[in-house]
């Protein structure tokens, strides 16, 4: 197994600490994220996913427990926070608040200026970042943010963080609110980025089909506790458990169950469409 780039040890989180509204939402999480992997974090709504993500780029600093990113403890007072936040790029759940400048170029430049990129390279970097997410820079460079569609906004938001040349990509429910084509496009560009730049990718998703398509490993987070963390094949075999957490199953898995019910003998471990196709062809040929 490759080495861990993020280590979380016994992490607790409470909102509104020291008030009568105090509420513990993460109850002692421990896990590791490996270098270069794509980890999916899945859980019912309000289970603490977004809260957990904010520990990876030190927006939250642990009061109880430890988070180590690239061998640096985020609690360490000597830590260079800016450098850490350049390394760990984050796409928030609400892309609208992630874009806060008037034009696309201004917005992407925001991070570059904060990180003290020299003036001459900023324009080139912006164009390169737009190209990476598949947006034509002639068309989009001077576009107003409010004139963009939801999918375009997400892409611009990603361009804004990719411009900083990160090593870890954190995506909070990135495909929510995208239309089917936008979703496929988006997943492909994430795959492409991962393969081309070798970014470690951590993403939250409420869509199990995204998880099957993208994830190397899956974490199931329920009520602030890790219920499972494993490769997708081992996760989706536990159908009853997943359903009992209020989660859904990937479409292919549902299809496999239907096939088995109607007497077609496919392997119940199958989770994606290619495996299913292969297995069905085999069955057809043998009969």
């Amino acid at each position: 197994m490759s080495k861990a780039i993020i280590k979380v040890e016994n992490l607790f989180h409470s909102y509104m600490q020291g008030t009568p509204f105090e509420k513990e939402v993460l109850h002692g999480l421990s896990f590791e994220v490996y270098h270069g992997e794509k980890l999916a974090i899945v859980g019912p709504t309000q289970s603490g996913k977004s809260t957990l993500l904010q520990y990876f780029n030190a927006i939250f600093i642990p009061k109880k427990g430890r988070v180590i990113v690239d061998e640096q403890d985020t609690k360490d007072s000597r830590l260079n926070l800016k450098e850490l936040r350049r390394k760990v790029a984050m796409l928030f759940q609400h892309p609208d608040s992630q874009l806060f400048k008037e034009t696309v170029a201004d917005d992407i430049a925001f991070g570059l200026k904060n990180m003290n990129f020299p003036e001459e390279v900023i324009e080139i970097t912006i164009k390169k970042a737009l190209a990476t997410v598949g947006l034509d820079s002639n068309e989009f460079f001077y576009r107003y943010i409010f004139s963009l569609s939801g999918g375009e906004k997400k892409k611009v938001a990603i361009a804004g963080i990719l411009a900083l040349n990160p090593e870890i990509l954190i995506l909070d429910d990135p495909t929510a609110g995208l239309d089917p084509k936008g979703r496929v496009d988006f997943l492909n560009s994430i795959k492409f980025l991962h393969d081309k730049l070798g970014l470690t990718t951590i993403f939250v998703s409420s869509n199990m089909n995204d998880v099957v398509e993208l994830a190397d490993r899956v974490m199931i987070l329920v009520d602030g506790k890790i219920e499972m963390i494993d490769i997708p094949e081992n996760i989706f075999i536990k159908r009853e458990k997943l359903l009992s957490y209020g989660l859904t199953l990937p479409s292919v898995v549902e299809l496999v169950d239907e096939l088995i019910k109607s007497g077609i003998n496919v392997d119940e471990k199958i989770i994606n469409i290619d495996q299913l196709e292969e297995s069905l062809i085999k069955i057809l040929n043998s009969s």
Partner: peptide, 13 residues
């Protein structure tokens, strides 16, 4: 809060 977090995440201190 969201805006501030988004800006901090891109290096604004």
């Amino acid at each position: 809060e969201r805006l501030m977090k988004a800006q901090i995440a891109r290096g604004a201190d």
